[in-house]
Computed example of a mutant assay.
Amino acid sequence: MASQIFAPDVEQVLDVSGIFVFALSGSLLAVRKNFDVFGMAVLAEATALGGGVIRDLIIGAVPPVAFTNTGYFLTPLLAATVVFFLHPEVTRINRTVQTLDALGLGLFAVTGTAKAHDYGLGVIASVALGLITAVGGGVIRDLLAMETPSLLRWDRSLYAVPAMLGAGITAALIAFDDLNAVTGTAATLVAFGLRMLALHYNLRAPRAWRRGSSQTGEA
């Protein structure tokens, strides 16, 4: 199967690590929004697992792995606990959190695309679900916190584009029957690298052409 890119134990560790870091970002937003401990737990779970749950529901992999793997479900609660007690310290290492988040973004884009392909989806649909796996949790997080999702905001550095690139490379590798641990890691690192460049240079997607001359009254 294409989705079995890494050895099972390695994939488990990578998945749990990505889930933990995504959950940290959800918990930190809850702190900024002055949510209570339950709200922190909800945002942690939604951010870490939301994209994978949406993917699994769409492809019919039910119940979603988030609910059948106890480690996946409990890891966001651990992250929320860490932030509950240590949020000033976690905030101070935000750059490290962003770096790990970028790595998780690339990993989930790759594994999400591969899993969608295993369930019979075509190239375009598999790439779309790879993207959803990577960024869906963040969208749910922002909506629950009553914010415009970060990946839709022009004033935020590229987030969805790196995930799309990683998913697209994965789909191409599958098409050429060349997806394995080495090439899957390479696809993950390409997405990670673009996200890090976007953070460092504040790269953004372009807005509508000639927008400034025709819609000057908008913010």
Rank of each mutant, 00 (worst) to 15 (best):
I5Q: 01
G120I: 09
G137P: 06
A44V: 11
A172C: 14
G217I: 11
Y159N: 00
S157H: 15
Q98R: 10
L24N: 01
L203M: 06
A7D: 14
V16K: 08
L100R: 13
G106P: 02
P88A: 09
R210Q: 13
Q215I: 08
G138Y: 00
P76A: 10
V10N: 11
T75R: 12
L86D: 13
Q4K: 15
G112I: 00
G184Y: 05
L189H: 09
D15N: 13
M146L: 14
A172W: 12
A66W: 04
L57F: 12
E147I: 01
K115Y: 08
Q12H: 14
A114Y: 04
P149T: 03
M164R: 00
V97Q: 12
S126D: 07
A30W: 06
R204A: 01
T111A: 12
I174T: 08
G120T: 11
S213G: 11
A61K: 03
S3D: 08
S213Y: 14
L105D: 00
V62L: 06
I59V: 11
L29I: 11
G130L: 09
A48F: 11
A80L: 11
L165E: 00
F73G: 02
S126W: 03
L194K: 02
A219K: 03
V16C: 04
A160Q: 02
R211P: 03
K115Q: 13
V21K: 05
R92F: 02
S25I: 11
R141A: 04
P206Y: 03
R153N: 07
